[in-house]
């Protein structure tokens, strides 16, 4: 839009010209998105949310719900970089006076955005997948393997053992934040704990009789759409 009359000041129009109501319908068609409709924008959830309060105020569950309900896609996309930052503490859901399952609704919004190709697959979703795979495979998770396997997925060059081809912690490339994070507690840990951890890395403990059960579980999770 030219506001000067002689084309020396051009601004992009900010006017909302329409709603995308199909988007909202799709969110609410997901089981976890149904309660979105109940929100009356009081912001009890946002006021309680640690991510909003201590990390980035652009992370605002109340606002995401308003945007999703009217289908204001460009506004949602503007916040795509923060929307996946939920730490699933469920304070929002426990406090909402209208019974909105806020945490679940936010996941439904993200899922719908991903499905419609409105955002790239967000990092926490990638982690969820990796986590689920680990549980499905062994019936439990192994912290070290999960962490370094994840770091490898992020593009770091990790060193693997020659036989089982599993990442060996801290031998290869390690993100700086992780080094700092881990060094402190490691110094105070006793030797036998570290040995146990290393053993678990090499010989991943499994839940007893897991092989049979995992086939059933995988099937169920798949049918429920948990692997998409």
């Amino acid at each position: 839009m030219d506001v000067s009359g002689d084309w020396n000041l051009i601004i992009l129009p900010r006017v909302i010209n329409d709603y995308d109501l199909d988007f909202a319908k799709e969110v609410m068609s997901l089981p976890e998105g149904k309660t979105m409709i109940q929100c009356y924008q009081c912001s009890y959830c946002t006021a309680s949310c640690p991510v909003h309060n201590y990390w980035d105020e652009r992370y605002n569950s109340r606002h995401f719900i308003h945007l999703a309900r009217l289908g204001l896609i460009d506004e949602l996309q503007k916040r795509a970089d923060v929307m996946w930052r939920c730490v699933s503490c469920h304070k929002c859901t426990h406090r909402c006076p209208k019974g909105v399952l806020v945490e679940e609704v936010l996941k439904a919004i993200l899922k719908t955005m991903a499905k419609k190709g409105l955002i790239d697959e967000y990092p926490s979703k990638k982690f969820d997948k990796f986590f689920t795979e680990s549980v499905l495979e062994y019936g439990r998770i192994e912290d070290g393997e999960l962490l370094f396997g994840w770091i490898e997925k992020q593009g770091y060059n990790v060193v693997k053992d020659p036989i089982l081809k599993k990442p060996i912690p801290f031998l290869g490339e390690t993100p700086e934040w992780l080094k700092q994070l881990v060094m402190k507690p490691i110094k105070s840990m006793n030797i036998s704990f570290l040995v146990l951890n290393a053993k678990h890395m090499l010989f991943h403990p499994r839940t007893k009789n897991w092989n049979k059960f995992k086939q059933v579980l995988r099937k169920v999770v798949q049918e429920e759409g948990g692997l998409t």
Partner: peptide
């Protein structure tokens, strides 16, 4: 103005 989004709107 959608006062929650803080943007002008002209919706059909």
């Amino acid at each position: 103005e959608d006062t929650i989004v803080q943007r002008p709107a002209e919706v059909p």
